[in-house]
Design a protein around this nucleic acid. Structure first.
Lengths: 247, 247
DNA sequence: CGTTAGTTTGACGGCACTCAAAAGTTGTGG
DNA sequence: CCACAACTTTTGAGTGCCGTCAAACTAACG
C-alpha cells in the first residue's frame, strides 16, 4: 500500500496513513504542529524498506546519526561482553523506536540487528533537533519518548524466577501486538530460543523446559515459534506475583 | 562552606563553587550560556539542605515536578512489587541526578528514599523546560543527561554470577567516588546489605558470603560498611570476565 | 546492661546450568 | 523428490550456585 520510498514524494495524506500505528506518531502528529510545520517535518523522515534479516541498523561505536522507527519485521538490540557472549537488550517490533541509546555519548552503546526482514522510518537526529529547536513542545515530546524507551525497561522483573520472567515476556509481546491491532492470544515469535534466553538471562535449555512445563499446565500451546496464550489471567498472575503464593 | 539555603541569595561565584562537582554542572555551566542566561538559570535552582535519612524525595505516583541533584549523602530509588517486596533500582550519591523516571508519564515510576542525610539541588522541570525552550543547546544537554542516566544502567551485568555483579558494584562505587576526588580504594557504604542484595538481585546471605569469600581471597578487606579494595585489577577482571576463565 | 537491628555463618534443598543426545526443521544439491 | 547437512529445539542426567531456614555474632542505643 505504500510504494514511495522517498519521504519527499509522499503527500500528507499518504504519510498520515503510513504513520497511524507508529510510535513516531507522537512526534510527527504532535497537536502543536501546524500543517506547515508538518510538511517540513515530513521532509526529514526517510524510509528504508525491505531490509533483509541478518543486517544491522547500527553497531556499537557507530556515530549517532538517527532515530529509527520499526514499521514491520523485528530488530534486536544487543551488546557483546568481554567473553564474546551476546546479551540481548530488547526486541523492537512494529511501532517501536530505537537509537536513543546514543543520545549521550553520540556513539551507539549497543548494536541493532535485523532478525526479521523489516522496513523502518529513519529520522536524522541533527535535523530533528534543529527543527525542534524552533518548536519547544516537540522538544518535550522527544524527551518523553527517550524517557519512556528506557523506563519501560526498568519495570521488567529482572531478578525473578525463570518462569515468571518468561510469562512477563510473553505478556509484554502480547500487549504490544494488541496495541497494534493484532490478536493478544496468537504470538508468532520473530526471535529464536537462544535470543529469548539471552534477553531473559537464562539458558536455552531452561527456556525450553519452561515452555514445555507451561504447556503441560495448560497455560499456553507451543508449536515452535508459534505460541497460543490459553490462560492470560493465570499468566498475568504468575508474571506479577511469581509462582509461590507467599503465605 | 555553603550556608545560603536559598538559590536566589547566592551570587554567581558562590554557586559556581558549589556546583563544581555536580552533574547539573553540564546544565548550569553549559558553554553556550551567557552570564546573563546564567543569572536567570541560577534563579530557578532551589536548595534543600540537611534532609534526614528515612525521608523521601518523591514516591511512586507523585506528580513530576523537579529534577534533583544529590550534593551529599545518599538516596536510593526503588519500587515495591505486587508481593510487597522492595526492589532497589539505584543508589544516588554526590553528583548524581534523579527524577528523570517521570519525564514521560509525568508521574514518578519509582520512589526515592534518603538513606543517608543529604542535601540536594532542586530544579523545577517546568521552569527548566521554559528556560530551555529559548536555548536549544540547553535542550540538547538535558536530553543527553536523560539518556546517560538510563544507559549507564543498561551496561550493568544483570545476569552474571553473584560475585561478578558484586565486583562490578564495588568498582562502580569506587569510580564514582574517584570522579568526585575521593579515594577509589576506601569505600564507606551508605547502604545496608539488604539494599545491596536487592539492587544486585540476590539475597543478603549470598551477598555476605561473597564479601567473606572475596576477603579470604585477598581481594578486599571488609569491616561492616567500610570496605577497602586491595586488588582492583583482579576485581576488574572478575567484573568484566566473570570467575571462570573460558578456555 | 539489655534490647534491637544489622551482619555473618552453617546446614540443607531446589532451581537453573552444564554436558550430552535425540528429535524436528530448513536448505542444498543430486 | 529424496538424501544429506546444518541448524534449532527439546529432553535427559548430573552438578553446583544460590535461596531458605535457623542460629550465632556484632554494633548501636536507650
Amino acid at each position: 500500500m505504500d510504494t514511495a520510498a522517498d519521504g519527499s514524494t509522499l503527500n500528507v495524506r499518504t504519510l498520515k496513513r503510513a504513520c497511524s500505528t507508529c510510535s513516531l506518531n507522537e512526534l510527527c502528529w504532535h497537536p502543536s504542529l501546524s500543517s506547515l510545520d508538518l510538511d517540513r517535518l515530513k521532509n526529514i523522515v526517510r524510509r528504508a524498506d525491505n531490509l533483509p534479516a541478518g543486517g544491522h541498523l547500527f553497531q556499537v561505536g557507530d556515530q549517532f546519526t538517527a532515530i529509527y522507527a520499526v514499521r514491520n519485521g523485528c530488530v534486536k538490540s544487543y551488546t557483546t561482553d568481554a567473553n564474546g557472549d551476546e546479551h540481548v537488550h530488547g526486541f523492537h517490533i512494529k511501532g517501536d523506536l530505537l537509537g536513543f541509546d546514543a543520545v549521550y555519548p553520540e556513539r551507539h552503546r549497543c548494536s541493532a540487528s535485523i532478525i526479521q526482514n523489516c522496513s523502518v522510518c529513519v529520522m536524522p537526529f541533527d535535523e530533528l533537533e534543529e527543527f525542534a529547536a524552533k518548536l519547544p513542545s516537540l522538544q518535550a515530546s522527544i524527551m518523553q519518548l527517550i524517557s519512556r524507551t528506557y523506563s519501560d525497561h526498568l519495570l521488567f522483573p529482572a531478578t525473578a524466577q525463570a518462569e515468571q520472567r518468561l510469562c512477563a515476556f510473553l505478556l509484554d509481546l502480547s500487549k504490544r501486538q494488541e496495541k497494534q491491532g493484532l490478536s493478544p492470544y496468537e504470538l508468532d515469535l520473530p526471535m529464536s530460543r537462544v535470543e529469548i534466553a539471552s534477553f531473559l538471562g537464562f539458558t536455552v535449555e531452561t527456556g525450553s523446559r519452561m515452555l514445555s512445563k507451561m504447556q503441560k499446565e495448560g497455560l499456553i500451546k507451543v508449536k515452535r515459534r508459534h505460541i497460543y496464550l490459553i490462560d492470560i489471567d493465570k499468566l498475568n498472575h504468575i508474571a506479577t506475583h511469581g509462582l509461590i503464593t507467599k503465605h
